[in-house]
Amino acid sequence: MRQGRSRVWAWGVSMHILIMEDDVAAAEAMMKGLRDSGYEVSHAADGEAGLALARQGGFDVLVVDRMMPKQDGLTVVSTLRREDDRTPVLFLSALGEIDDRVTGLKAGGDDYLVKPYAFAELIARVEALSRRRETGGVSTTLKLGELEMDLIARTVHRAGKEIDLQPREFQLLEFLIRHAGQSVTRTMLLEKVWEYHFDPQTNVIDVHISRLRGKIDKGFDHPMLQTVRGAGYRLDA
C-alpha cells in the first residue's frame, strides 16, 4: 500500500470521497483502505443523509450502495443528476438482478461494482473516476515520459522510436496512458477496452498485456508497464 502518500489536486487539497453505505462494517473497511491510499473520506449510513451531504458539495467521487434505508442509491443519484450535480458516481451493488448494471448507469452512475469486490478493484475504480475530472479539454496527443501517442495519426513513439501496434493494443495503451500512475484491474480493462461485462476464467488480458509490454518496453532502459500484485497493471513514466 502507498501508505501516507496523499492524492492531491494541483492546488494541494486532497481528494474527498463520500461513501454512502448502510453496512457499517463494510463502510469502515472501505474508509480505512481509502484513507490508507491517501483519500479524505466521509460516510453516510443512509440515502437521505448521503443526499444531504452530497448536496453540500466538495466531493470528487461518490461511492453509492444501491440498497440503503430511507432512500435507495438509484434515487439519490438520479436526484443529484437532476440537480445538475455531475460528481462521478461509483455504484456498489450486492449481487442483484441480471440487468442491474444497465439501470445503474442509466440513473446517472459512471461505473458499477458488484459486491463482494476485491479491494484493489474498488481503489482502482475510485482512482479512475477521481482523475477523470482533471483531464479537461480534448487533446489529440497523449504523453507520458518517453512515450507519445498521436490519436489522430494512430502512431506511438517511445524515445523517438516508432512502435507498431495493433488497433486493440493501441486502445489498450490509450486507456493505460489516460490512467497513468493508477492501478487498473483486468476487469476494468475487459470492460473499458473490450467492452465485455463478463469474466473469462482464463486470464486472457494477461496475454494482451504481455504482448503490449513486449512492444513498448523491450529494448528500452526501464519498463513502463508494471504488474501490480493482487490488483492488475500500472503504466508509469
Binding site: 486493440r168 473490450w194 467492452e195 465485455y196 473469462p200 482464463t202 486472457v204 496475454v207 494482451h208 504482448r211
Partner: peptide, 10 residues
C-alpha cells in the same frame, strides 16, 4: 470478433 481476438492471442 472481439472474443476471437481475445482468445486468439491466448
Amino acid at each position: 470478433a472481439g472474443l476471437a481476438e481475445l482468445y486468439g492471442a491466448l
